[in-house]
């Protein structure tokens, strides 16, 4: 049974680290703000050189914002996990009554909370400086954010499982995951542009349905709620799958003693 105090312990530890640590707080808003500024001016420029009738702000700047949001959720979860890697805290943590579900819940709460700061910064900047209005997406914004939240959480947990299995050096495999996925999910273009094999992969990726839905709304066709519901189902499945993968890797690490010898990266 999950105990709230143990989940709170994981969250409180991250709160202590964030409090009074500008090097941890700044990246939460700095990189996403830079992205919004850069793409804000690109969309403004595109609106001036293309014919009237199509507004790039909700199509491109909105896409950047939503994609950055997913990335921030993922990085929020993985960074919370990396704090335990960096401080060699596994033995202290896993030799306690803390269960894996409590630990992952703490990481997810931390990741979601920190990503909300980034989301707020992006929204303020995109709305005030570049006139992006999320009201244009209507009620579809709810499934958009839900699918991206869940997808970011799943990617974050999967990233943590990879680092737990392959050691601290594999951290560098985790950071580029959003960049690797972005061509497939059609952040900036419709999936119909992609070759068949990429489209097949895209249809297995929950965020694809968000960006297709967003373009559908911008084109005045309304939100494809059935497709979005399917995307949400996929995202839930990802989270369950990612938790199972993490639990399996954890059991492997216990069975082989990897956790006790984590700095060695392998037990062979």
């Amino acid at each position: 049974m999950m105990r709230a105090s143990r989940v709170a312990a994981v969250v409180v530890r991250q709160f202590y680290l964030l409090r009074g640590s500008p090097v941890r707080l700044l990246p939460m808003v700095a990189w996403v703000a830079i992205d919004i500024v850069l793409w804000g001016f690109i969309t403004r420029y595109l609106n001036t050189v293309t014919g009237p009738g199509f507004n790039f702000v909700p199509a491109l700047l909105g896409a950047v914002l939503l994609w950055d949001f997913l990335s921030r959720v993922m990085q929020g979860v993985t960074t919370a996990f990396f704090e335990d890697v960096w401080s060699r805290n596994f033995l202290n943590l896993f030799a306690t009554p803390l269960t894996i579900s409590e630990y992952l819940s703490g990481l997810v709460i931390t990741g979601v909370t920190t990503s909300l700061f980034g989301l707020a910064a992006m929204l303020i900047l995109a709305t005030t400086a570049f006139g992006l209005s999320f009201l244009a997406y209507g009620v579809a914004l709810v499934p958009f954010v839900l699918v991206l939240f869940l997808s970011g959480i799943a990617l974050g947990i999967l990233g943590a499982a990879i680092v737990l299995r392959f050691g601290p050096a594999s951290e560098w495999l985790i950071w580029p995951i959003p960049a690797v996925l972005s061509p497939f999910v059609g952040v900036f273009y419709p999936l119909s542009i992609l070759p068949g094999w990429m489209q097949a992969i895209a249809h297995l990726l929950a965020p694809s349905y968000v960006f297709e839905g967003m373009r559908s709304i911008v084109a005045g066709k309304g939100a494809p709620m059935t497709e979005l519901a399917f995307g949400a189902g996929l995202a839930v499945a990802y989270v369950v799958l990612a938790c199972l993968v993490f639990a399996r890797v954890y059991r492997y690490a216990i069975r082989t003693g990897l956790i006790a010898r984590y700095s060695a990266e392998s037990v062979s």
Binding site: S5, R13, Y16, N92
Partner: peptide, 12 residues
């Protein structure tokens, strides 16, 4: 103090 509080929460 922070370490003691975190692990105190874990041990309930």
């Amino acid at each position: 103090e922070q370490n003691l509080r975190v692990f105190g929460l874990i041990y309930g």
